[in-house]
């Protein structure tokens, strides 16, 4: 298990990185944390001719908390974001979800943006991206553009990102102040990719739910949002249990899981629905 040879590029600036990307195009891959890419290289499941290592690119490793968003640079490690108190205060869902990404040693290296760019439907952060209406800041030879999370993911490991484009940062949208969030997943072992997982945002007014949205891990081919407002609107901690059937039905109808060696599609559908039900009960009673 050793990677095939490749030409290594270590740009120091964004311009250099873009120039290198433009030059090698489809023959190249961006190397961020490498926690998904390097295993694939070592198993020779991927054999790009060029690697463009963005770890040395200046200015990509910052977290910025603004009124409407938390902006995470392309080289920010999962662990760095998980630990950021500012980011946690602004958007607790980030830490709630990140704790479920792999193990600490992987999070010390893997990047949140890389995880989103990688677009694995079993990843936690793509589902957080859609739930927060995140915006991808993208640079390419043709200049920069922004892609809404809803338009970003097109299939398992597929996005609308061009081969010569780089996600420089992701802006995760903040929720209204009266919103509580939660994240739960079930994995076979701690740190494994989830069999199913749910991210949830409940907004309330006058002690009752006024808006509810959920997104999922490992049970949809592209991460997308299920709006549960209709099902949950007006529910309180005391009476939310009565909405369980509606929630379960809505989740079951929304998800499109597939069977693999760890679980059947039916089981995943059940699990996603049950986890959602439990998470709602937990978040609302906080």
């Amino acid at each position: 298990m050793k990677p095939a040879p490749f030409v290594y590029h270590a740009p120091r600036t964004l311009d250099e990185a873009l120039a290198a990307l433009g030059e090698v195009g489809h023959d190249g891959k961006i190397l961020a944390g490498g926690q998904s890419l390097i295993p694939m290289l070592s198993m020779r499941l991927a054999t790009p001719a060029h690697l463009i290592d963005i770890n040395g690119v200046a200015g990509l490793d910052t977290i910025e908390v603004a009124d409407g968003y938390v902006r995470v640079g392309a080289c920010v490690r999962h662990a760095q974001l998980e630990r950021s108190e500012e980011a946690y205060a602004a958007l607790p869902l980030l830490r709630q979800a990140l704790r479920n990404v792999a193990h600490p040693a992987i999070r010390n290296r893997g990047t949140t943006v890389g995880s989103i760019a990688h677009a694995d439907a079993a990843g936690e952060m793509p589902s957080v991206a859609v739930l927060t209406d995140a915006v991808m800041e993208v640079c390419g030879p043709a200049g920069s553009r922004e892609i809404a999370a809803g338009d970003f993911f097109t299939g398992p490991l597929e996005t609308t990102l061009g081969a010569d484009e780089l996600v420089t940062a992701v802006r995760f949208g903040r929720f209204p102040s009266n919103t509580s969030t939660g994240f739960v997943e079930s994995a076979r072992r701690s740190g494994d990719y989830a069999v199913a997982g749910v991210a949830l945002a409940l907004t309330s007014g006058d002690g009752a739910i006024s808006a509810a949205r959920a997104s999922f891990v490992s049970v949809t081919d592209v991460p997308d949002v299920l709006d549960l407002t209709e099902v949950l609107s007006g529910a309180t901690a005391e009476d939310v249990a009565a909405r369980a059937d509606g929630v379960i039905e809505a989740v079951r109808a929304h998800v499109t899981p597939e069977s693999d060696i760890h679980a059947s599609a039916d089981y995943r559908r059940m699990l996603a629905a049950e986890l959602t039900r439990r998470l709602i009960a937990e978040v609302i009673s906080r």
């Binding site: 295993p39 198993m43 076979r188 072992r189 701690s190 740190g191 494994d192 060696i261 760890h262």
Partner: peptide
């Protein structure tokens, strides 16, 4: 986990679930 054609589908530590301390 072998499939019918004799491919071992979980020939890695990612998919062969050896327990961690948590399990």
């Amino acid at each position: 986990v072998y499939d019918e054609s004799g491919q071992l589908l979980n020939a890695s530590f990612m998919d062969f679930l050896m327990p961690y301390a948590s399990e």
